[in-house]
Computed example of a mutant assay.
Amino acid sequence: MITPSQLAAVAELSASFADGQVEITSRSNLQLRAIQQQDLNSVIQGLDSAGFLPSPEHDRVRNIVTSPFAGLGFGEIVDTRPFVQELDRRLIADQVLAALPPKFSFSIDGGGDWFARDSDDLTLRVVSVDKTHSFHFVIGETLSGFCVRIDEALDCVLEAAKICLKISKEFQIPARGKKIASVPQALDRLLDGLSSFLVACPSPDSSTLVAHMPVGVYATHQSDFASLVPLVPLGRLTAEQVQCVAIIAKECEGDIRLAPWRGVVLGAVPKHSISQITEHLEAAGLSFDAKDGYRGIAACAGSSGCDASLTDVRRDASSLARRLAGRNAKPGWTVNISGCEKQCAMRNGATAELIASSSGYGLRINGQLIASNCSLDSVIDKVAACQAEEPFEVHL
């Protein structure tokens, strides 16, 4: 969640001290690139003034995730926004928790649609038993088989984070949920330490996981309001586009959420303003019909932003998007384009994976190697055929 004034501040900092672009990451954060060393202090001061650094000691471990549609709809059972805000407040008030690993993450799932991303270290997932709501406690991807009462959920998850730090020292393993869950003695130690909070309960329904990238206008709990979800090509906005979103959100008194599909949600927008808003955003290059070819395409920084990349994957991703433009994108169909074998920006389960090499691209479709050392034109042909479900040749 980000305010219009904060978003406008980021746009101004990017235009003044970075490359004029603002990237949305798969953890729903913002990233600025190409900042010069002599400008770093000015950027930090600008971020601090905008309210982005309420606790410098905890800044790298304040990773709290919930649905971008929290409080708006999508089958939600519990509005998770108050839990997120209170967890953040209590996290930064506790100096012990500043020792958590930088990528340690919490997630709070209020039910309804949950958008695919990497597993989090500690998760609370709502379940309903006998018309009473509780949170199922999840470590990494492991369902614990236990629930915690709604009013004790934050006490439980904060205590769990502290126990993770102790387990890390006792067992000499990283203080990460997936790692702890993979060591039976460590997992038992964690659950024993939380026994006063936990009660046995059924597992939550996992059928709500959504892999596609929402685009368009969506209904909310309030009949006179809607949520607007423009398509952000490659998760990258120009400073001018960011300013446009900030101005619109301020004028219509909507709220802004960054999303794990590297996009943005304008929530609680008055329905009478939708046509005007979508017209302004489309004029700024942010579409609502998903026919610009970019839906489902993700790419790393490429050679323009990373020395390890072997080619300009953003340019190549744009070439692929132009080829796919005008088609009805299939929900759940995804492409990931990486500039090297490290695949830093790789999402889980991409339909098509393009990996650059010194002599072309390698291509995997649904995990199967289809081609090696392929030219860009050839690999685009194969990806386009895959999306259209047409036959294509395999070259190894």
Rank of each mutant, 00 (worst) to 15 (best):
D120I: 04
S203W: 02
L13Q: 04
I44Q: 05
L286S: 09
V229P: 07
D113I: 13
R327V: 12
I337L: 13
I163W: 05
C156V: 05
K178Y: 12
E86G: 04
G71C: 00
R89F: 11
G293M: 06
I247R: 04
M213S: 15
V61A: 14
N336L: 03
I274E: 03
I2H: 00
V269G: 04
Q31G: 10
P260L: 10
Q45I: 02
A160P: 08
V265Q: 06
E253S: 11
V264S: 09
S16N: 12
I247K: 03
L324R: 09
V335K: 05
T123N: 14
G110W: 01
Q241N: 10
G73C: 05
I35M: 06
S309T: 03
S182R: 03
A298H: 04
V43Q: 08
V394H: 04
Q38F: 01
F104Q: 14
A308G: 05
P56D: 14
S196E: 15
S372R: 08
L30M: 10
I380P: 08
L97Y: 15
T132R: 15
L7R: 03
G339K: 02
I64W: 00
V126Q: 00
G305N: 12
R262N: 11
A226F: 00
K131C: 12
N373F: 06
A70E: 00
A11C: 05
N29W: 00
V313K: 02
V217E: 10
Q368N: 12
V22L: 13
D205N: 15
R189E: 03
F146I: 03
A246R: 00
L91D: 14
A246K: 01
Q37T: 09
E282N: 13
L258S: 06
F288S: 06
P54A: 10
N328K: 11
A15G: 13
S134F: 12
A153I: 05
K166F: 11
V183R: 02
D316P: 00
G296Y: 04
Q45K: 07
S67F: 06
P54E: 10
G263S: 02
K271Y: 00
R90K: 12
L165I: 09
A116G: 10
D224H: 02
S319V: 01
S5N: 00
H133I: 03
N336R: 02
I150D: 05
L47H: 09
D48Y: 01
L266G: 11
S357M: 08
P202V: 09
H136A: 14
P4N: 00
G254T: 00
L376I: 05
S119A: 15
S14Y: 06
A93V: 10
I380T: 08
A153Q: 07
E353M: 05
P391C: 09
S105E: 12
A226E: 07
S42R: 08
K162D: 13
T351Q: 11
D316Y: 03
A321C: 05
G73I: 01
K382T: 15
A352F: 03
I337S: 05
T238I: 03
T220M: 00
S105C: 13
L191V: 10
I256V: 02
